[in-house]
């Protein structure tokens, strides 16, 4: 085929380029700008080089928040991925149950994040919250305001309630795309329920699971709104994740340089870990 060269075509990309520039590149550059400068006010900046980065990487506060983030994301993935697969496997494949289940599953996803936080904040209160009050009445010493463990449990259960549906819906989409012939062939081959899961369903869900793991990892690693509303990062610093700490640093303490450096490190870590997940999970695909 003859190729047509027309350099005017580049102008067609210009609007998108401008849009991306204003929405992503320029803000990011501002952050980079702050991260290498210092200010004492009056809009006077001077060069700080890598000082902020060194400070961040040597701060215990940063690494503790990072540790909390990693533990939180690990727990979220360990709970939500298997639970999501399990629910998807048990959802009806046809009949009136399908729309009912899909709507039920979609509901938590439709609720704004801060509303989710508020719901659980009230739900968990020991004086008026259904959950908190009931647990108390049953004799549990539950109080997410004072007890770090209870605070963690509350935030995790809230996230599982909010986001497992996403995993379910993705897995369900993967499952219903498997042609009947696979199940029929498995029957003829005498495969057990486990073998059907292991050799048909799981491989066919491979791609959607990759998406589910990536989305759930990134989102949980960036979690902000819900714990901010429920615990505000407390008690103490026990539920202060990187994002909450970042906001404290930037807005609470107005430490723009350090906050900017932290943002960049945070961003690079998310990118790096996502890349690792992606590479590991697709390595299987490439294997022939």
């Amino acid at each position: 085929m003859e190729r047509t060269w027309n350099n005017k075509a580049w102008f067609m990309v210009l609007p998108v380029l401008l849009l991306v520039a204003f929405s992503a590149i320029i803000p990011l550059m501002t952050v980079v700008n702050y991260s290498v400068q210092d200010t004492f006010g009056n809009n006077v900046f001077f060069w700080a080089g890598s000082e902020w980065f060194e400070e961040i990487l040597h701060s215990d506060r940063f690494w503790e928040a990072m540790g909390r983030n990693l533990v939180f994301s690990a727990i979220i993935l360990i709970i939500e991925i298997p639970l999501g697969i399990f629910i998807a496997l048990n959802m009806p494949k046809k009949g009136w149950g399908v729309p009912v289940c899909l709507v039920l599953m979609a509901l938590p996803l439709l609720i704004p994040w801060n509303v989710v936080g508020t719901i659980w904040q009230v739900f968990g209160r020991v004086d008026i919250g259904l959950l908190g009050y009931s647990l108390r009445a049953l004799g549990f010493d539950y109080n997410y305001v004072n007890d770090p463990f209870d605070a963690w449990v509350t935030v995790i259960v809230m996230d599982v309630w909010h986001w497992t549906s996403l995993v379910v819906l993705l897995c369900y989409a993967g499952l219903v795309s498997i042609p009947d012939a696979y199940y029929q062939a498995a029957k003829i081959d005498g495969a057990s329920r486990w073998a059907i899961f292991r050799y048909i369903q799981l491989p066919k869900m491979n791609r959607v699971l990759l998406i589910a793991v990536l989305l759930r990892f990134m989102d949980s690693f960036m979690i902000y709104t819900e714990p901010f509303v429920v615990t505000g990062g407390g008690p103490g610093n026990t539920t202060t994740f990187l994002s909450i700490d970042l906001v404290k640093l930037a807005i609470g303490e107005f430490n723009l340089g350090e906050a900017a450096a932290m943002s960049i490190v945070y961003f690079l870590i998310i990118m790096l870990l996502s890349w690792v997940f992606y590479t590991v999970m697709t390595a299987y695909d490439a294997e022939r």
């Binding site: 042609p179 012939a181 696979y182 029929q184 062939a185 029957k187 003829i188 005498g190 050799y199 048909i200």
Partner: peptide
């Protein structure tokens, strides 16, 4: 199906 001991080849190739 198992007890009947039948083999069946489908329209679209089914492989693991």
């Amino acid at each position: 199906t198992q007890e009947r001991n039948i083999a069946q080849v489908f329209q679209f190739p089914v492989i693991y």
